[in-house]
């Protein structure tokens, strides 16, 4: 068992982990940050996406020890300081970009990473970027629309309102 320390959502966090403990397990089981979800065991579904030193990372694919000393951001740290939804979260609610909510934390974290690098992505760029995030509920329609809206694009012309 090894001591690990990191900054999570701006606060220092530490714990004792096995070498095989995944970052997703550390966040969920030791820090109680259960918004990071685990939907598969092959690094495909993206429900567990978090930010590590500003990069989108699948937390099921990284050992907790690898995140020692890192700045980690999870869905629990995304809302505005006053607790209101941030621009991406609000766009997901406004455009019904979630149904069961299980993939949603990963979608929001991936969307944030995309928009950081590409502030106004095209529909095709969004769909391509979300290759590693699976949603079973929405058919992706309203997720793509929400991300376009969050980037300030006019989505009123997109079908089905």
């Amino acid at each position: 068992m090894t001591q690990v320390s990191m900054t999570v959502n701006g606060k220092s966090a530490s714990g004792t982990v096995e070498g095989r403990t995944l970052l997703s397990q550390f966040l969920r089981d030791q820090l109680g940050l259960t918004g990071t979800h685990v939907g598969c065991d092959t690094s495909q579904c993206g429900a567990c996406v978090v930010h590590v030193n500003g990069e989108a990372v699948k937390a099921c694919t990284m050992l907790a020890l690898e995140a020692d000393g890192a700045e980690v951001g999870t869905i629990e740290g995304q809302a505005n300081a006053d607790g209101s939804l941030n621009v991406i979260q609000q766009a997901f609610q406004d455009h019904h970009g979630l149904q069961c909510g299980f993939c949603t934390p990963g979608m929001v974290m991936s969307a944030a990473a995309l928009l950081k690098d590409n502030p106004t992505p095209t529909e095709a760029e969004i769909r391509d970027y979300l290759e590693g995030n699976i949603c079973r509920c929405t058919g992706y329609h309203n997720i793509v629309k929400a991300i376009m809206a969050a980037s300030g694009q006019d989505v009123s012309g997109i079908a089905a309102e």
Partner: peptide
């Protein structure tokens, strides 16, 4: 949506 979007769901 608010609880799901903020990681406060209870699965």
């Amino acid at each position: 949506d608010v609880r799901f979007l903020t990681g406060a769901g209870n699965y």
